[in-house]
Design a protein around this nucleic acid. Structure first.
Lengths: 330, 330
DNA sequence: CACCCTCATGTTTACGCAAACATCACACCA
DNA sequence: TGGTGTGATGTTTGCGTAAACATGAGGGTG
């Protein structure tokens, strides 16, 4: 900076003012400084800047994996929105979804240059790990029921599941079977609860749950079980990938979709439209979730206030070719 | 820090030594300092640290999208490896895959606190945008042929494609049709070139290429074309998602896979094993790519030397149920 | 014409940390 | 007993920036 100042024939403070767009610099001076900057290839040192300003203009994102559609799409939206607000985002991967893993991530977090954190994971893991957020670090949580303690942004899981189950009942199915996700997952539990509620409200029998782990393979295994149930004509899968596995199992067992069995997924990943048959599923707006996260976090950072509460992003049912009225028994 | 020093009854320098694990601090002193730190909730200010040390211990990752399996898996591996080396990673999304978008990302990069950058995208876009990397920032590029100018880490696209095509020829197919990715993609071009080479070397006819855009939908459209070609018995798709679309098109047109037509993909995404039928595909080791990127970049950062050259990560063919010998014509 | 105000610019200082150097106590040896 | 070395700890300093304050030139007003 001093070099630039010398070359431009001004003080370093003026250089600082130019690089921050301060108004009270006369146009001719500004141009000289800009010129000198370019000539010397000057770029401000962000560490010094952060030190002086007391903020990093960076958001940390803590998550287990980018391998799920939901996570990677959410992170992408977070990154885009943050960039627009002039914030960078730092990824803090949690090596393993265990207390130790989480603890490790938070330890690293303590030394990281972030003004706030977005946590994309089950909060009960946070609780279990007995964590304390570094003071001054704000937080927003995704995919959680901790709305009473933290600001939470999430897809409206319950409503999405309700739409899926109602859609199947409306088509005339007697009841709906369910392939759920892992028990540790809040989304998974929420979808299952909504499925159960709709059936109960409608006075329908609630069949036993098939448990998967979000993977297509686990869906396949669940599908083999369901294919063996002659009374099963409608299946609601907690995500699209498990639905893919279910479709394969039904196909292999010779049960035609949607003529004999209807299948609904959740997420609306791009591939779902190309499944055999194209999958009816619940569309999640991950981009909106990401956007809301950043907005919520920046609000907190600017106002220095933590306001618990849950923001729900709505879902829509996308009807494709995997659902139809049940076969007529006589 | 001064507060901690006061409480522990030592100098601030000793606090610094403790927080950096410097050896020459006596155990009793260390414990006192640690105690004081905990009591006061002290955590080192990473901005000041970076300022003093002249390095940020952060790696930037520039990419267009996390929506593709390859990118998100690579980023995940980069993040994991970087964390292990004590580096954080900062995501720098490029809003749009245009010159302006790239230029914008690099402008932001100039102000970011990173010691090096991993660029996951087509380098010709970099060239086109006439970019200069900020001095002192090292770079590693993924998915590119710029091995003469930058260090490049990439999957061995050509070998993977060769394995796929040979597999089909070995099964007895007369020739192999190809669904390629977008023309701007280096990976896509490389796979297509290898496909062509193998056919030419084997003296087989080279059918016209069907061009897709990586999406399952584009694969579906290409598949409709191919389904109408009676002579087409083997299809090599440049990625798994397009293969998914091709499978759907063939199914809808009543062409059975693999009895009448064989299909091979590329990537080996987890879902590929659950397609109808389970897809034979080329497995990419994204995790290894990510690891090598970080290693290469840290090497550069530590030695301050840029060494162009390409590191190729090998691929393996995973044979599943979508390939078989061609139907016998008589 | 003297006063004061405004605005561009310069000077000083501190942000929090750690390298470099300084100091001091103690042990060991001749 | 004095000298010397070693290792623990303290003191000084500067990293690059921007806020706060200081300066000084010009312009307007009574």
């Amino acid at each position: 900076m001093a070099d630039v100042a010398r070359l431009a024939g001004v003080s370093s403070q003026t250089v600082s003012r130019v690089s921050n767009g301060h108004p009270s610099v006369v146009e001719s001076t500004r141009r000289q400084v800009l010129n000198a900057m370019q000539q010397l290839g000057y770029r401000p040192n962000s560490a010094a800047r952060a030190l002086k300003r007391g903020e990093f203009r960076t958001i940390g994102v803590i998550l287990f994996t980018l391998a799920t559609t939901g996570n990677s799409r959410t992170v992408e939206a977070i990154a885009a929105q943050a960039a627009q607000e002039g914030y960078a985002i730092t990824l803090i991967p949690v090596a393993m979804p265990t207390q130790d893993g989480v603890l490790g991530a938070f330890t690293r977090l303590g030394e990281l240059a972030v003004d706030g954190v977005i946590v994309i994971m089950e909060v009960h893991l946070l609780d279990a790990a007995n964590l304390t957020l570094p003071p001054g670090v704000q937080v927003v949580v995704v995919d959680s029921d901790a709305g009473d303690r933290y600001p939470v942004v999430d897809t409206d899981q319950a409503d999405g599941a309700r739409q899926a189950v109602r859609h199947l009942l409306d088509l005339g199915h007697e009841t709906v079977w369910h392939v759920t996700g892992p028990a540790e997952s809040f989304s998974s539990e929420r979808r299952a609860a909504a499925w159960r509620d709709v059936l109960t409200e409608a006075g329908r029998p609630v069949p036993p749950v098939q448990r998967g782990d979000w993977s297509a393979l686990s869906g396949y295994e669940a599908g083999l079980q369901l294919a063996a149930e002659p009374s099963c004509t409608a299946i609601f899968c907690a995500n699209d990938q498990m639905a893919l596995g279910v479709l394969r199992a039904l196909h292999e067992r010779g049960r035609r979709v949607p003529d004999e069995v209807s299948v609904v997924g959740f997420d609306d990943i791009p591939d779902a439209a190309s499944y055999l048959p194209p999958l009816t599923t619940v569309h999640q707006d991950f981009a909106e979730v990401g956007r809301r996260c950043v907005q919520g976090l920046l609000d907190q950072i600017r106002r220095h206030s933590l306001e618990p509460g849950t923001v729900l992003v709505p879902t829509t049912l996308v009807a494709r070719a995997s659902t139809a009225p049940p076969p007529v028994f006589q």
